[in-house]
Simulated scan of single mutants.
Amino acid sequence: MKLIIGAMFEELQTSIDYFKAKKIENSICNIYENEKILFCVTGIGLINAAVGLSYVLNNYEISQVINIGTSGACDSSLKQKDIVWINKIFNSAADATVFGYDYGQIPKMPKFYESASNDLKEKYINKNIASSDIFINDIEQVNKHIKKIPSMISVLDMECFGYAQTAYIYQKPFISIKVISDVIGTEDSNAVQFNEFIKIAGNEILNVVKNLI
């Protein structure tokens, strides 16, 4: 069974409703199921992401982990509503450089994680993401945390790295696709306010899920 996992119910609600998935758990995380898809809403942040996905992988037979949700961006080539296939995934608050590791790398773990290969990859914009529990929303924070990473980072969130590292530990194929909510440093980056944007994003996310299932 494929797992669609995200931080907020609002991001996945349209897909959950479309596939008529029924809530089957609301303990560690909220889990919804139909005959071929499991949806999980973990809550926001790296630890919630890792704990929620670990719980699912310990209790359900999952063939592939797919993280879909909304994310900010720090790349002026992107715009609100763009759909991005995530290539490489970094931790923007991990700094063990004093021990010889790259900035963004957890000690004794890979320098980054990657989305699994898929024919749909070429259908979307391809970019890298950095995650942390820091909500990055201005250029000063980008310069402080993101520019240190030795790869071009375009997308920012608070969960993807937690999902990716957990999937890596459990040896499950992992894919992440993001709908851009706003772009730091762009004048019209938030042309549609978030409360309205999340409805638009929900429809975009549903289209992605249809393509992946």
Rank of each mutant, 00 (worst) to 15 (best):
L3W: 08
L3D: 03
I5N: 00
A7Y: 11
A7V: 01
M8T: 07
M8C: 09
M8G: 02
M8E: 09
E10M: 06
E11K: 01
E11L: 05
L12R: 01
T14R: 11
S15K: 00
K20M: 14
K23M: 13
K23R: 15
I24A: 11
I24N: 07
S27C: 03
E33Q: 13
E35N: 15
K36E: 11
L38I: 15
C40Q: 06
C40L: 10
A50C: 06
L53S: 02
S54L: 00
S54A: 12
Y55A: 04
V56K: 04
V56I: 15
N58L: 15
N58P: 03
N58T: 12
Y60F: 15
Y60T: 05
E61V: 11
Q64F: 14
I66V: 14
I68V: 15
I68L: 13
G72L: 07
A73Q: 00
C74Q: 01
S77E: 13
S77V: 12
S77W: 06
S77R: 14
K79T: 14
Q80F: 12
Q80S: 12
K81P: 00
I83T: 13
V84G: 07
V84C: 04
W85R: 09
N87S: 15
K88P: 04
I89C: 01
D95E: 05
D95P: 04
T97Q: 05
G100R: 11
Q105I: 12
I106W: 07
M109I: 10
K111M: 13
A116Y: 11
N118W: 05
D119M: 14
K121I: 10
K121A: 13
Y124N: 01
N126F: 12
K127M: 13
K127S: 10
S131W: 04
D133E: 10
F135R: 05
I136R: 07
D138Y: 06
D138G: 07
K144D: 08
K144V: 01
K144Q: 13
K148N: 14
E159V: 06
F161N: 13
F161Y: 15
A164V: 03
T166K: 06
Y168H: 14
Y170M: 14
P173K: 02
P173H: 03
F174M: 02
I175T: 03
V179T: 11
S181M: 08
D182A: 10
D182V: 09
V183A: 03
V183L: 09
I184K: 02
T186E: 13
E187H: 12
S189V: 10
S189D: 09
N190T: 15
N190D: 13
A191P: 11
V192N: 09
Q193A: 15
Q193L: 12
Q193D: 14
Q193K: 15
F194L: 13
N195F: 05
F197S: 01
I198F: 06
G202N: 01
I205S: 03
L206M: 00
L206T: 02
V209P: 07
V209G: 08
K210L: 13
N211I: 07
L212N: 03
L212E: 08
